[in-house]
Design a protein around this nucleic acid. Structure first.
Lengths: 203, 203
DNA sequence: GTCTATAGTTTGATAGAC
DNA sequence: GTCTATCAAACTATAGAC
């Protein structure tokens, strides 16, 4: 909680202090008092910087997305083969999802926010770059599958495993290593490469 | 909204009236007054049937999930081979996710629940049976993969594709048939069976 | 730019009549 | 089993001093 001491916060300070709060508890789960507390301010001071709670929330989400979306794509090297690029992408995606839980949860909240179509477009804005990168890769890799569905599948395999981390923990067969991004990445890569029946003869 | 007219609701009536409310707006987004309204009752009457809001919510979710997961498990016939059972399960899951948006959104809310104790209760008492069924199935199918991770992957492939339906529509390459549960099921089954490189030689 | 103080609303939950 | 009436707490937001 108490991340701040000095007063005189800028708008951006407030956004960065409160992003983890909204990521954790969602719009309805965070009060202006909560935000004020982590900023070391009173609620009244917040209303100097933002007209109301929803404006603050929208700026928090936009700020976080702008910040993180660039990092998603900088890891692809055209000099590598498509398969190696895909392997690296999956590994990087698993690491991002494991490390940046704030970003991951914020995306979940935006997907669930039923109120505004604008917030859905925020997710599209971020998701589209991600999707396009995978789409271009898999289109080069394999002509049998619909590249659109294949891209969705790859992203689903990495993201939903990461998103469901808290629930997964209570399922039979769970081991701590299942939370390691490298373990997830290797599993997804193996599954994509070989499927289920490649091992029947060799295992 | 106003789905009910007659008074004298049973517990189950209340659960079924309020499930779409919690699915749409989540725990914090629904007040006891809202629930009372769709049941045609006053908030006080609700407290005759349930000690507090959280108990009501937990029963709503548990009720919805018991109903759906029982239907899924009943479609597994031991007379079929494990692979045929898995194919049928994936197809049924895809149809459920496409048809029952309330169930799908409820699952999203549960995954975002910030109260870990609440999540644990739901996971243990509701998800566990479903997960175990998939777990037992894939354990028979293939010994190379960790059955825990493989079960999560299969569920992820079907669910996240369905959850992201509204966002997917804006991605390049989208066609309306991608929303058909049979198309999704066939794609997932093919991917699981053969992986990406089974088709390199056959075209 | 931040404070104290508070208005006005909504919330979860209860008491007691019927 | 449901009602009316209500409480105490928490909430968003505002007014005015400094």
């Amino acid at each position: 909680m108490g991340q701040s001491i000095g007063k005189r916060q800028t708008r951006e300070d407030i956004l960065e202090f409160s992003v983890s709060l909204f990521a954790e508890f969602g719009y309805d789960g965070v009060s202006m008092r909560d935000v004020a507390a982590v900023c070391g301010l009173t609620p009244a001071a917040l209303y100097y910087h933002f007209p109301h709670k929803e404006a603050l929330y929208l700026e928090v989400v936009a700020h976080a997305f702008r910040e993180k979306s660039a990092a998603l794509l900088n890891n692809l090297k055209d000099s590598d083969s498509p398969w190696v690029q895909l392997e690296n992408f999956i590994t990087n995606l698993a690491h991002l999802a494991a490390k940046d839980e704030i970003f991951l949860r914020l995306m979940q909240w935006v997907r669930l926010d039923s109120e505004e179509i604008r917030q859905q477009k925020l997710a599209v804005h971020v998701f589209k770059d991600l999707f396009l990168a995978v789409h271009a890769l898999v289109a080069k890799l394999n002509s049998h599958y619909d590249p659109y569905m294949l891209s969705m599948s790859i992203i689903s395999l990495v993201f939903l495993s990461s998103e469901g981390r808290k629930i997964r923990k209570f399922m039979p067969g769970y081991r701590p290593e299942h939370d390691q991004p490298d373990v997830l990445a290797r599993h997804v890569i193996d599954l994509l490469r070989m499927g289920l029946f490649q091992h029947r003869t060799s295992g």
